[in-house]
């Protein structure tokens, strides 16, 4: 039995808390508070500490941590990424320049992406069907040229879609671990 620690990162409003709630089999520990600056971002709540959930993928246990989306909480990014083994970057397709958010978050977590595994989930894709998928794939390739970064269109509210994303990440981690072991 393996235990995986997975981080959910991405900008405010991308669906990180929703995704963890969709996946978790325990009641999610949340640090959501009221967003007091609705003028800057029209969303009722925001995460200021972390979200935490768990899921059993028999025989493996997966611990799910969501980090705050706003950069002023990046000290939490540093704390949580140290023990993480994989990264799910979520971005919403209807945000201005979603590929910029992919660039920023993949850059901030590049060491984790190289050490463990990484996938990108694009939410609200149905609202913004443009070339955004291609732009995000190109951005991921530019930040992490030495590896393939899978990009999925997902609905963070959909448990099955999020499960598929998570399983893809774990397969990526296990494959990389097997390759590393074979090479050593």
């Amino acid at each position: 039995m393996a235990e995986y620690v997975i981080l959910f990162a991405g900008p405010m409003g991308a669906g990180k808390t929703t995704a963890i709630r969709s996946l978790s089999e325990i009641e999610v520990v949340s640090t959501e508070v009221a967003n007091t600056d609705r003028e800057a971002f029209d969303k009722p709540t925001t995460t200021v500490g972390m979200d935490y959930g768990e899921i059993d993928l028999d025989p493996d246990k997966v611990r799910l941590y969501g980090v705050p989306g706003q950069a002023r909480f990046d000290f939490m990014w540093e704390i949580l990424r140290e023990r993480a083994m994989g990264l799910i970057v979520l971005v919403n397709a209807d945000a201005p320049e979603p590929e910029r958010h992919v660039y920023e978050h993949l850059t901030a977590f590049a060491e984790l992406a190289r050490r463990g595994g990484v996938v990108v989930g694009v939410t609200r894709y149905d609202l913004q069907r443009t070339d955004i998928g291609d732009r995000i794939v190109a951005t991921a390739r530019a930040v992490l040229p030495d590896r393939v970064t899978p990009v999925f269109a997902v609905d963070a509210r959909d448990q099955e879609q999020m499960r598929t994303l998570l399983l893809s990440l774990i397969a990526d981690i296990e494959t990389r671990q097997a390759v590393a072991e074979a090479a050593s």
């Binding site: 640090t31 508070v33 009221a34 967003n35 007091t36 600056d37 925001t46 200021v48 500490g49 705050p68 706003q70 002023r72 909480f73 000290f75 939490m76």
Partner: peptide, 24 residues
């Protein structure tokens, strides 16, 4: 609650991140 500084003392030299760390 979401980590914005409303006011601070001293005005200069207080860590910009004190408010966000405190809200966390």
């Amino acid at each position: 609650d979401d980590g914005f500084t409303i006011a601070r003392i001293p005005q200069v030299g207080t860590d910009e991140r004190l408010a966000s760390m405190a809200s966390t």
